[in-house]
């Protein structure tokens, strides 16, 4: 039980997929222009991560070592296709605004990385704990980043007006440049906190 909690907690802060391991950058930068997009992307990625970690840790003994990476990608691609069709059918607005980045979950290095370094070596229950932790970690990272960008860029959070109509919107924050710079500063702040905690 203690081991499971440890696996789960890893992804939340210590080995945070975005801020510490710098994985899965493409969707992180591309879809965090509004909080709702960030949340949807986080949940979609978590779903694919959890399902593929379960399947891969179950079938890991059946996959020959030489073809494991292509096999992992195929399993991931199957779940991504499922997610894509689900979003298009039930949440067409979100599917339209995420567009290309739903299929690109296939090549999200976070997902493949976890299969390679965790699911292919550990039993199912530990893989589920790991996937949940990493998924929640990835999601909170995306939500924090997108809340900052949406608040400064449009003066709202989750579409609700926060800063009032008099606020002069910083359009720059929703554009690509703003994404890079906000993420760079966030990673810097997290590094600073970790350095302070470990240093003294």
């Amino acid at each position: 039980m203690y081991q499971l909690i440890k696996d789960f907690k890893q992804g939340l802060w210590e080995e945070h997929p975005l801020f510490v391991m710098i994985l899965g950058m493409c969707p992180t930068l591309a879809v965090t222009n509004t909080a709702i997009n960030g949340l949807a992307m986080g949940l979609a990625t978590s779903f694919v991560l959890i399902s593929s970690e379960i399947v891969i840790s179950l079938v890991k003994k059946l996959i020959p070592n030489d073809v494991r990476i292509p096999s992992f990608i195929l399993i991931i691609a199957t779940f991504v296709t499922f997610t894509d069709y689900f979003l298009k059918a039930f949440l067409p607005d979100i599917a339209a605004s995420l567009s290309l980045f739903v299929p690109l979950i296939v090549v999200n290095c976070l997902i493949l990385g976890r299969q390679e370094s965790f699911a292919s070596q550990n039993p199912v229950h530990r893989s589920i704990a790991d996937a949940l932790g990493m998924g929640i970690g990835f999601t909170w990272g995306l939500v924090v980043l997108s809340i900052i960008r949406e608040l400064l860029g449009m003066g709202s959070i989750f579409g609700a007006e926060i800063l009032g109509t008099g606020y002069r919107q910083m359009i720059f924050m929703i554009l690509p440049g703003g994404a890079f710079i906000t993420l760079g500063i966030l990673v810097g702040i997290i590094n600073l906190i970790n350095l302070k905690r470990s240093g003294n």
């Binding site: 554009l175 440049g177 994404a179 710079i181 993420l183 760079g184 990673v187 810097g188």
Partner: peptide
């Protein structure tokens, strides 16, 4: 982080 900020300026 610094690479991301540089990339932002380039963007």
């Amino acid at each position: 982080p610094i690479t991301l900020i540089l990339a932002g300026i380039m963007a």
